[in-house]
């Protein structure tokens, strides 16, 4: 059963390329348009299963495609949407992926160069899954404060979370208590915990660990 699809991409060359590629993989492209306004019209007209849209399109070349995708997600609940972006924009990704319902994808345009992976991602979205570009995931993780900890600092934090005192941690890790204190200080620094009463910071660090 071919998948009825609508494409929005302002570059004619890439648009034609995408149409040709999708048709090889059993997608039926009902409409291929060049801007967000036409995209909304085409979706109303063809009621496709899948929409693939570029982010940056005429008239202002900002995030017209993303706005249209968000509008379509609200107005057509069953519609599966994949947004192709030239650059990682975390706010855009977050906006699109917010909400419980799946059937949505946020991919970098570079992925188009790997046809099989792209088609697999499209199928995943069609089955109701959520696809986030690996690059987006990498950056989100890099931002998480726990990522800044070294392996030893993590171990120390894990033992703190289990309720061990500094001397108990020192014994477990077979290091001196001074070293443990240094690790803990680094943990506090890296988790942006301001120097207040020690016990309070300890609790906050543990909370951050459990949430992470």
């Amino acid at each position: 059963m071919p998948v009825s699809t609508v494409i929005a991409e302002d570059s004619g060359l890439l648009r034609d390329g995408l149409v040709g590629m999708l048709e090889r993989f059993d997608f039926t492209v009902k409409a291929a348009v060049g801007d967000a306004e036409q995209l909304l019209k085409a979706v109303d007209e063809h009621q496709p299963q899948l929409v693939i849209t570029d982010v940056r399109m005429p008239p202002d070349f900002r995030d017209e495609g993303l706005r249209a995708a968000l509008a379509l997600r609200a107005s057509h609940p069953g519609l599966k949407i994949v947004v192709l972006s030239q650059y990682v924009e975390q706010t855009s990704a977050a906006e699109l992926l917010a909400g419980e319902q799946g059937g949505v994808g946020y991919l970098l345009k570079d992925r188009v160069a790997d046809v099989r992976a792209l088609v697999a991602a499209l199928h995943h979205v069609l089955e109701g899954g959520t696809v986030v570009d690996p690059e987006v995931v990498r950056r989100l993780l890099a931002q998480h404060p726990l990522e800044r900890l070294t392996a030893r600092e993590r171990e120390t934090l894990a033992l703190m979370a289990e309720g061990h005192s500094n001397s108990a941690i020192a014994k477990r890790l077979v290091v001196t208590e001074t070293t443990v204190a240094k690790h803990i200080r680094n943990v506090f620094d890296k988790l942006d915990l301001p120097p207040t009463e020690d016990h309070h910071r300890r609790v906050l660090a543990v909370v951050a660990y459990l949430q992470g």
């Binding site: 890439l14 188009v112 160069a113 790997d114």
Partner: peptide, 10 residues
């Protein structure tokens, strides 16, 4: 154009 080229080559 490059994206399209890479896709076609793939």
């Amino acid at each position: 154009q490059l994206v399209t080229l890479a896709m076609t080559l793939d």
